[in-house]
């Protein structure tokens, strides 16, 4: 059975839910700790949502220097699937594994809503179980969720098909409605909305979130 690691930082909130989502998708969740530098041999890694280190300095800025992040960066560069959700996305941007950065939502408030996303790239390690152009519904909840990058970077992301998810109805001012992006290789994906909260009927807005984790399982089988 595939083993997918979920990293807990001080201030992580959604690590348990991410581990539950991994289990419901049919993989074995492995809890990883920020202060260790071992990934315990996992096949893929999830950086969960929350407010690691209280979002001090900038969201994700201090987590980037956690001992485990050196191993996550090495694994990502070696092709291991890595998913950053919300605060995890912010950490991946601060670690330079993904482009851009997040700033406060335009309306300056915390947002919590079920959000429709359009799948713009159904070929990454975390989106291959969706159809190109498919619309999915998963929760969104954050304060610093506005995705920002300079125009050349945005053009590069668009041109290389690295925009993975776009908001249908931009909730927070994100440039070009971008909700999630990938790296050049397609193994590292980050997004602000929370797939791990939409994995079981009766809990959340549906089960569209399962597709993220099943995509990783498919990607792992394909590379085995």
């Amino acid at each position: 059975m595939a083993r997918i690691g979920v990293v807990t930082f001080p201030g992580s909130l959604d690590d348990r839910d991410a581990a539950r989502a991994v289990r419901l998708a049919g993989a074995e969740p492995v809890r990883l700790w920020h202060a260790e530098d071992s990934l315990a041999g996992v096949d893929a890694v999830v950086l969960p949502g929350g407010f690691s280190y209280g979002d001090y300095l900038r969201a994700g800025a201090i987590s980037r220097f956690a001992p485990i992040m050196g191993s996550v960066v090495d694994a990502a560069n070696a092709g291991v699937p890595v998913l950053g959700i919300c605060n995890g996305f912010q950490i991946l941007c601060e670690s330079h594994l993904l482009a851009g950065a997040m700033v406060k939502n335009t309306q300056l408030t915390f947002l919590c809503t079920d959000q429709v996303l359009r799948v713009e790239n159904a070929q990454t390690a975390w989106s291959n179980q969706f159809a190109q152009g498919q619309e999915i519904l998963i929760p969104l909840k954050n304060q610093d969720g506005q995705f920002i990058a300079d125009e050349p970077t945005l053009d590069e992301l668009e041109g290389e098909g690295r925009v993975v998810f776009r908001y249908v109805g931009n909730p927070n001012g994100s440039r070009r409605d971008i909700a999630g992006i990938t790296n050049a290789r397609g193994n590292v994906v980050g997004l602000m909305p929370h797939p791990e909260h939409a994995v079981e009927d009766g809990f959340g807005p549906g089960t569209d979130g399962l597709g993220f984790f099943r995509s990783a399982l498919t990607a792992l089988l394909a590379s085995a």
Partner: peptide, 8 residues
């Protein structure tokens, strides 16, 4: 390298 993020 730490106190600022050159993207923003």
């Amino acid at each position: 390298e730490v106190l600022s993020n050159p993207v923003i």
